[in-house]
């Protein structure tokens, strides 16, 4: 039987790591690096990147 996770925050990517807790956090130096990390994570995890509006990207498996 295949088990898959859905509607789960797989990771967060932030410049200011203090804004996130409870999920794996990837720190970035600047916005470009943040977007790159988020893109790689979304490809690897087959997930979607959402902008929290406070400088944090979350990667969510839908």
């Amino acid at each position: 039987m295949n088990v898959s996770v859905r509607k789960v925050i797989m990771a967060a990517v932030a410049i200011d790591g203090k804004k996130v807790s409870g999920v794996p956090v990837f720190s970035a130096q600047n916005e470009e690096e943040q977007a790159n990390i988020a893109t790689i994570l979304s490809r690897v995890l087959e997930a979607v990147v959402h902008d929290m509006g406070n400088g944090v990207y979350i990667v969510v498996r839908h």
Partner: peptide, 20 residues
């Protein structure tokens, strides 16, 4: 509207990345 995608007045989804 920023990162939110709308079709007319209907919110579709939050698209985080600029390149997307």
């Amino acid at each position: 509207e920023e990162y939110n995608l709308f079709v007319e007045d209907i919110h579709i989804m939050n698209v985080g990345l600029e390149r997307t």
